[in-house]
Amino acid sequence: AEIMKKTDFDKVASEYTKIGTISTTGEMSPLDAREDLIKKADEKGADVVVLTSGQTENKIHGTADIYKKK
Rank of each mutant, 00 (worst) to 15 (best):
A1H: 02
A1W: 01
A1L: 09
A1S: 05
A1V: 14
E2M: 14
E2W: 05
E2Q: 15
E2K: 15
I3T: 02
I3Q: 01
M4H: 02
M4L: 05
M4C: 07
K5E: 15
K5C: 15
K5R: 12
K6F: 07
K6T: 06
K6P: 09
K6I: 07
K6L: 06
T7C: 13
T7W: 08
T7M: 10
T7D: 12
T7L: 10
T7P: 08
T7N: 09
T7E: 15
D8R: 03
D8P: 02
D8Y: 04
F9W: 05
F9T: 02
F9S: 01
D10T: 06
D10K: 08
K11N: 06
K11R: 11
K11H: 06
K11V: 07
K11F: 05
V12M: 06
V12Y: 05
V12I: 11
A13S: 14
A13Q: 08
A13K: 13
A13H: 07
A13W: 06
A13I: 08
A13R: 13
A13D: 03
S14T: 11
S14R: 09
S14P: 08
S14N: 10
S14L: 08
S14K: 12
S14Y: 11
S14D: 12
S14V: 09
E15N: 11
E15S: 09
Y16M: 02
Y16P: 00
Y16D: 02
Y16N: 01
Y16T: 02
Y16G: 01
Y16I: 02
Y16H: 03
T17Y: 15
T17K: 09
T17M: 11
T17C: 15
T17I: 15
T17R: 10
T17H: 10
K18P: 05
K18F: 14
K18W: 15
K18R: 09
K18L: 12
K18H: 15
K18V: 03
I19G: 01
I19T: 02
I19N: 01
I19W: 03
G20V: 02
G20S: 02
G20Q: 00
T21A: 07
T21R: 06
T21Q: 09
T21I: 07
T21K: 06
T21M: 07
T21F: 07
T21N: 06
I22N: 00
I22L: 06
I22K: 01
S23V: 10
S23W: 12
S23K: 10
S23H: 12
S23Q: 12
S23P: 04
T24Q: 06
T24R: 04
T25A: 11
T25S: 14
T25H: 11
T25V: 10
G26S: 11
G26Q: 11
G26W: 07
G26F: 09
G26E: 12
G26V: 13
E27Y: 13
E27I: 12
E27A: 13
E27C: 15
E27N: 13
E27H: 12
M28I: 06
M28C: 10
M28Y: 07
M28A: 07
M28F: 07
M28G: 09
M28L: 13
S29C: 10
S29I: 06
S29G: 09
S29Q: 05
P30K: 08
P30C: 15
P30D: 14
P30S: 14
P30G: 12
L31F: 09
L31A: 15
L31T: 10
L31Q: 15
L31D: 15
L31Y: 09
D32N: 08
D32R: 07
D32F: 07
A33D: 04
A33H: 05
A33C: 11
A33T: 07
R34C: 14
R34P: 03
R34L: 15
E35Y: 09
E35H: 13
E35Q: 12
E35T: 10
D36Q: 11
D36W: 14
D36Y: 11
D36G: 06
L37M: 06
L37T: 01
L37N: 00
L37Y: 04
L37C: 03
L37V: 03
L37F: 05
I38V: 07
I38M: 08
I38S: 03
I38K: 08
I38A: 04
I38H: 03
K39E: 04
K39C: 07
K39A: 08
K39P: 01
K39F: 06
K39L: 06
K40P: 00
K40A: 05
A41Y: 00
A41H: 00
A41Q: 00
A41G: 04
A41D: 01
D42S: 15
D42K: 12
D42L: 13
D42I: 15
E43V: 07
E43K: 09
E43H: 07
E43Q: 10
K44R: 14
K44Q: 13
K44Y: 13
K44M: 15
G45D: 06
G45C: 11
G45T: 04
G45E: 05
G45S: 05
A46P: 00
D47E: 05
D47Y: 03
D47K: 03
D47S: 06
D47H: 11
D47C: 10
V48I: 10
V48E: 02
V48W: 00
V48M: 04
V48T: 02
V48R: 01
V48H: 00
V48C: 05
V48P: 01
V49I: 15
V49Q: 00
V49H: 02
V50S: 01
V50E: 02
V50Y: 04
V50K: 00
V50G: 03
V50H: 00
V50F: 00
V50P: 01
L51Q: 03
L51S: 02
L51P: 05
L51V: 08
T52D: 10
T52Q: 13
S53A: 10
S53I: 15
S53Q: 10
S53T: 10
S53C: 14
S53D: 13
G54C: 15
G54H: 13
G54I: 14
G54K: 07
G54F: 15
G54A: 13
G54M: 15
Q55M: 12
Q55L: 14
Q55T: 11
T56I: 12
T56F: 13
T56H: 11
E57N: 11
E57K: 09
E57G: 13
E57L: 10
E57S: 10
E57F: 07
E57R: 08
N58K: 09
N58S: 12
N58G: 14
N58F: 09
K59L: 15
K59H: 12
K59P: 13
K59R: 10
K59D: 14
K59V: 13
K59Y: 15
I60P: 09
I60N: 10
I60Q: 13
I60L: 12
H61D: 12
H61G: 13
G62F: 15
G62M: 15
G62E: 12
G62V: 15
T63S: 08
T63Q: 11
T63F: 09
T63Y: 09
T63N: 07
T63W: 07
T63H: 11
A64S: 04
A64L: 05
A64Q: 04
A64C: 05
A64H: 09
A64I: 04
D65W: 02
D65S: 03
D65I: 06
D65R: 01
D65N: 04
D65Q: 04
I66K: 02
I66W: 00
Y67M: 03
Y67I: 03
Y67D: 03
Y67K: 03
Y67P: 03
Y67R: 03
Y67S: 04
K68R: 09
K68E: 06
K68W: 04
K68M: 07
K68F: 05
K68Q: 11
K69F: 05
K69I: 04
K69E: 04
K70A: 08
K70M: 08
K70Q: 07
